[in-house]
Amino acid sequence: MTTTATVSSSAQTEATDVKSRVDPRGPRPKPFFTPRKIIIYSILFFACLYFLFPLYVMIVTSFKTMPEIRWGNIFAPPIEWTGEAWTKAWTSACTGLTCQGLSPGFWNSVKITVPSTIVSIFIAAINGYALINWRFKGSEIFFSILIFGSFIPYQVMLYPLVMLTREMGIFGSLWAVILIHTIFGMPILTLLFRNYFAALPVELFKAARVDGAGFWRIFFEIMLPMSLPIFVVALILQITGIWNDFLFGVVFAGTQNYPMTVQLNNIVNSAQGSPEYNVNMAATILTGLVPLIVYFVSGRLFVRGIAAGAVKG
């Protein structure tokens, strides 16, 4: 303490010399274990346990054999680790009429998710760009109607859309699900892109116009290279949203194209025989794996993008 006192007192007398010395700066460091922090971290810890416990139970159960599960100790780790349930869930569990496991459903989900995500994001990005930078008469009304669309419950539109796709001759095919996902992704994605583009300086757009660039060139060469964060957000929203979708898949895809979620449901709810809990658990984890991975890989980008897109608008 005495040394600091002398340093600070001499600092007042010879201000030029003081910069060369190592002088403590900033506020005094706080101790880590304050009552406040202890309370906060213990709450966080228990919340964490609360949410992770079901996952733990699922994982351990999926590695147990059926006899071991029947003993009833659901919290205990498996005595004998086995991957049989996982293999069965993936390759041979019965999903309704066929018994090929979840793998066909996985590939169906991929076939639905990839095109739906690309098409919906592409159209929404153009929507947002046009709504902000190429305002036309009624563009605000158009936008309001689009946003209003996101407040209407899905069920209301389900039957009209069934009729519509039937008239178009695509009902019960991959095309129908892709179309439906594109439509339902439109309001939120357009809002996202519109707000993001609104936050970009309008002078960039003006400069590009003076330079002679048109609608598409400005979009592809000026706007898109600046919108990576919002594209990541849109990608995550769409991939997880479409992957987790059950309703549209079961209604529009047709039996041969059922996505993973629907087939998971068929495995878990199959009426014949005693329920195979280990297979059910493995199948559920497998189905949830894709959104989980997406979140883990891009979580940081996601937060950054949300902040960038949502603040202004």
Binding site: E203, L204, K206, A207, A208, V210, P225
Partner: peptide, 12 residues
């Protein structure tokens, strides 16, 4: 040709 207050250079 136009010169803007915020420069409006294409950042990428």
């Amino acid at each position: 040709g136009m010169v803007f207050q915020s420069y409006a250079l294409y950042p990428q």
